[in-house]
Design a protein around this nucleic acid. Structure first.
Lengths: 232, 232
DNA sequence: GTATATTATATTGTTGACAATATTATTAGC
DNA sequence: GCTAATAATATTGTCAACAATATAATATAC
């Protein structure tokens, strides 16, 4: 659970001192390697190697492992070691159900808690330039835009509790999103859906925006089911 | 995130050896003290004291603290120490929104994935005896029944992902439930609502059961708003 | 040559000692 | 007596050595 982030932020603000610990650095970097598939599922990760690479003591690595385990990114088997968590089709499908209700809620709260004009920036971001980027399969640009959308919505929702549970599943969602991006036609459909959602948010129609976001997740789920042989 | 539980379980099963580590014992006991208000929010908790009390090294206590921090039960301020996380009215309200969609999903999936007869035991549990217990304010019995309901639903949903996010917020939900139990009239209303939900589940009407469960949470929210001066 | 037992190596688990930091108590100055 | 500086104590943070366990390599029996 990532209340830690919130906590950290507030304590940093109050102390006016952005000290990042070795453990946090490790967690971030390992997280990055895992979700980018640089460390694919099942990879064995050794404490000593990482301690040497990052020039920290093994204790720091173990602390980082504890956090990654709690977040479900790695699996630790006592006295044997740590491996990157394996994701099966089943857990992907489960994830869609949870995402559907949570991201729907996110969009609804975000719409309710802001003035319509608040979304003009995002509507602009999801404009012609991004459409062209999607056309030429520039996935990184599109991924960044989606991340922006998500971040803005969570912030606007004003719910740290929701942020916490969404952060919890974020890494798994990201790895799935990256894969699905490759499926022909999925990216452009997702782009259009986000445009529609933003229109509903701009119109202040929270309930409709929620339903569109839920439909969006259900649509991703359908694509996943169709292509899961290639995706797993 | 409590995928750890799932992981532990499977590895235990495969190894046929239920070895509980010192760290796990510590986490469970501290969790219990926190949710039972034996360690109220804001309490300072010292590593040395606990290490001595449980006769373990300070490292084990620190590991436990790391897990509790990740779960949002305690807050650690660098070089200062750990305190039990404070809950304000705002975060309680946020929790209701998240609970509404997640527990609704839980009930829907549980209904979809089981035969109607599966719920006969629970319907029986939520019968006249429990009604009388609620009448005479026997809260522990009612709490146990609710926990049973929750557990059965999560199991029936078949989603470890859902289990994970629900476990994540469980401790905070429990502390709220315990407090609301004291509000006159709330317990008996909650009891009736659970009966209705179970009827819908018995009838195999997943969508209706979901809506009833969501209405149930909204109802709890209303009671909380009315009495929050006494509850916080 | 294969399978089993034994040894050697590598890896994780745990601890106590020490360092860094914060909190409390004491003193000095006015 | 009150405040500020200093010392003493308590608490958390970090590390490196050691123990326990698992894996790999070697030797032995048949």
């Amino acid at each position: 659970m990532s209340y830690k982030n919130v906590t950290k932020l507030s304590s940093v603000v109050s102390a006016s001192k952005a000290r990042i610990s070795d453990t946090d650095r490790l967690v971030d970097e390992l997280r990055r390697r895992i979700v980018s598939n640089q460390m694919p599922p099942g990879s064995r990760i050794r404490e000593n190697e990482l301690a040497e690479e990052f020039d920290v003591s093994r204790s720091r690595v173990r602390d980082a492992f504890g956090i990654l385990e709690e977040r479900g990114l790695i699996e630790r088997i006592p006295n044997k070691g740590a491996v990157v968590m394996r994701l099966e089709a089943g857990s992907f499908l489960e994830l869609f159900d949870v995402r559907e209700v949570l991201e729907g809620l996110m969009v609804r709260l975000a719409t309710q808690n802001t003035e319509p004009e608040h979304w003009d920036d995002l509507i602009n971001l999801f404009g012609d330039d991004l459409a062209k980027a999607v056309e030429r399969n520039d996935f990184n640009v599109y991924l960044a835009a989606i991340a922006q959308f998500r971040q803005s919505c969570i912030n606007a929702s004003g719910s740290d509790t929701l942020r916490g549970v969404l952060d919890d599943i974020y890494d798994r969602v990201l790895s799935m999103t990256r894969r699905l991006m490759l499926v022909p036609g999925r990216a452009s459909e997702g782009f259009r859906q986000h445009q529609e959602i933003l229109q509903a948010m701009r119109a202040g129609n929270a309930v409709h925006a929620e339903e569109l976001k839920r439909a969006n997740i259900r649509s991703v789920r359908k694509w996943f089911l169709k292509y899961n042989d290639f995706l797993l």
